[in-house]
C-alpha cells in the first residue's frame, strides 16, 4: 500500500514536471523577454519622436488656464485636490522669508493677499510631470504598470496598476496622485492621446502667453530644440539624477 502510493507520487510528479514545466517555462520566460522594436500603432511611429517640454517662468502670468484645460481634457476629478499640472507662486518678502502657495493649483487664479510693499520679488512657476529620463516612479513600480514609451513619455496602465502608491512616494516632484475612482496611480501623460495625433498638450495649447512649449527633441527644428540650443536652461532637483525632460527658463534657486 505504502509502496504503491510512493511509486504513484514518483511517477506522477515526473509526468507533471515533464509535461508542465517545459512549455510553460519557455512560454513564460522566453516570450515575455523579447521586446519588440515595432510601434504599437501603424499611423504613428514612436521611434521617430522623443518629446520634450520647456517652461518659461519669466512669461507665466499665473492665469491657471493650463491647469484648468488639463483637468477638462483628461477628466481629472475637478473638485478633488489632485492635479496633473499646477502653478506655484513664489513671493520673496522683504524680511527674507519665501512664501510659496498654489491655491487649487492656480485654477481659480491668485489674489494678492500680501501687500505689495512687503514683497521684494514675486513670480509664478508652472509645474508638470517631468517625464524623467531616469524616472524613479518607473523604477519602483513593482508590477510594470507604469513605463516609459519609446518616445519618452511616462504612462500609467490603469488596467494593471495595483494601487500600492509606491510611485507616488518615489516621485520627487509631487507629480503623481491617487485616482480614487480607478484605485490606481494617475499622472500627466503630456496628453499622449493628443501628441500622437499631431496636437499639442492641452496645457501648452491653453497657455495665452507661450510660457509652455512642447516639441520633439529628435527634430532639430522643433521649438524646444531651438530654445535648448540657445538659452541657459535648468531642470528641477537636478541633484537627484532623474534627468527631467521639462526644461526651465528663469528658474529661481528656491524653486524645488
Amino acid at each position: 500500500m505504502k509502496l504503491s502510493r510512493r511509486d504513484f507520487t514518483k511517477i506522477g510528479s515526473k509526468i507533471v514536471i515533464g509535461a508542465a514545466t517545459g512549455p510553460v517555462i519557455i512560454d513564460a520566460l522566453v516570450k515575455k523577454a523579447q521586446a519588440s522594436e515595432s510601434s504599437p500603432d501603424g499611423d504613428y511611429d514612436w521611434n521617430k519622436h522623443y518629446w520634450g517640454y520647456v517652461v518659461d517662468t519669466t512669461k507665466c502670468i499665473g492665469c491657471g488656464r493650463c491647469a484648468n484645460a488639463c483637468k477638462r481634457e483628461n477628466e481629472v476629478p475637478f473638485d478633488e485636490p489632485v492635479y496633473r499640472t499646477w502653478i506655484e507662486r513664489y513671493r520673496k518678502l522683504k524680511d527674507g522669508e519665501m512664501k510659496i502657495d498654489s491655491p487649487n493649483a492656480g485654477i481659480d487664479g491668485f489674489t494678492d493677499d500680501i501687500p505689495e510693499e512687503e514683497i521684494n520679488k514675486a513670480f509664478y512657476v508652472p509645474k508638470i510631470c517631468n517625464h524623467c529620463e531616469n524616472a524613479p516612479c518607473v523604477q519602483v513600480c513593482p508590477v510594470g504598470a507604469t513605463y516609459t514609451t519609446n518616445d519618452g513619455v511616462i504612462l500609467v496602465d490603469f488596467e494593471y496598476c495595483i494601487g500600492c502608491r509606491y510611485c507616488i512616494q518615489a516621485c520627487p516632484y509631487g507629480a503623481r496622485y491617487f485616482n480614487l475612482e480607478k484605485g490606481t496611480a494617475d499622472k500627466c501623460t503630456w496628453c499622449y492621446h493628443r501628441i500622437t495625433k499631431g496636437l499639442l498638450p492641452a496645457c501648452v495649447q491653453a497657455c495665452p502667453v507661450g510660457a509652455r512649449k512642447f516639441g520633439d527633441l529628435k527634430d532639430p527644428e522643433s521649438i524646444v530644440n531651438k530654445i535648448l540650443d540657445k538659452e541657459r536652461i535648468n531642470v528641477l532637483k537636478p541633484d537627484l539624477g532623474t534627468k527631467p525632460k521639462v526644461y526651465y527658463l528663469g528658474l529661481d534657486r528656491e524653486v524645488r
Binding site: 513600480c141 496598476c161 495595483i162 480607478k182
Partner: peptide, 21 residues
C-alpha cells in the same frame, strides 16, 4: 491596495528594478 485583486501581479510580473517587486 487600490486594487487588491490585482495584488498577485507582483508574483506574476515582478518588475525587478523595484525594491517592492
Amino acid at each position: 491596495l487600490g486594487n487588491p485583486l490585482r495584488g498577485i501581479e507582483i508574483m506574476f510580473t515582478p518588475h525587478l528594478t523595484s525594491a517592492m517587486s
